[in-house]
Design a protein around this nucleic acid. Sequence first.
DNA 1: CTACGCGCCTGAACGC
DNA 2: TGCGTTCAGGCGCGTA
Length: 306
Amino acid sequence: MPELPEVEVVRRGLDDWVVGRTVESVQVVDPRSVRRHLEGPTDFSATLTSTRITSAVRRGKFLWMILDGLETPSALVAHLGMSGQLLVEESSATDEKHLKVRLQLSPEAEKPAELRFIDQRIFGGMFLSPLVSTVDHLPGGVGSEIPVIPKAAAHIARDVLDPASTPETLFVALRKRTTQLKRAILDQQVISGVGNIYADEALWAAKLHGLRSTATIRRPDVVRLHTALVDVMDRALAAGGTSFDALYVNVNGASGYFDRSLNAYGREGKACQRCAEAELTSLIRRDPFMGRSSFSCPRCQRKPRP
DNA sequence: CTACGCGCCTGAACGC
DNA sequence: TGCGTTCAGGCGCGTA
């Protein structure tokens, strides 16, 4: 599943292969993938056709391409959801089983002709959204101007890799909430780009339990947590950024990081490596959380008293 | 207003 | 073996 580092790899791929080109035609193969375009698939295709893509931008897991040539300045927003892919391919390439949207791009030497959106589970999608100019009042950018951001992504906070996101802004945002720590860092309006996997990894690295209350969280805890979040994203980006075929903007959302470097997520019943290095034995446990799972070490992530 | 839980989807993995 | 059930996940939205 694509998390923030994978989406950043996709954004860089769009920079290399798509930016500067014009959309010559659009084929919506499955209208469900453009359901967030409220004017419908026909309008989506018609409006997007003949626009020129001038840049590729990301915030959290939202990705968008700024479009030139529309009366209302807008972006083509893409969210990969659980299983989305953006692939740059020659027109002759066989249609993928879950091909949802196909963009034919203006010809350019050495560059394939199509940008394809593929999505098995349809949690993701593409849509057009007008650019809004707004003061960023959200945590991470108090008072700073955001010149252009799609209306559909204007409500989310700065993400983990944004320089404007700091331990202090995270601390302020957390203290404004009355909830549990893991719920809060999964809330895009607190800090964006953190999914279930990296939430567990960062909490483990920071030795914090996800059930800790945000109301009583202390600065040193948040400094460790923010550092851990940045670190886990950086490491995944370093791993993911090198493991992709040049022609693919992304491959299956998979990151080499997942297989080798997870310390908590998915490791139920396995030894906590940090405890093992201290010659202690502690097994990672799994607990139900929001209808899903949380993984943690019962020894180095102390559960708060109820 | 905030906090919380559901529904959207498919297919792999599982149980009877 | 085959068929039904469960699970995974982000995010928008409805409800309390």
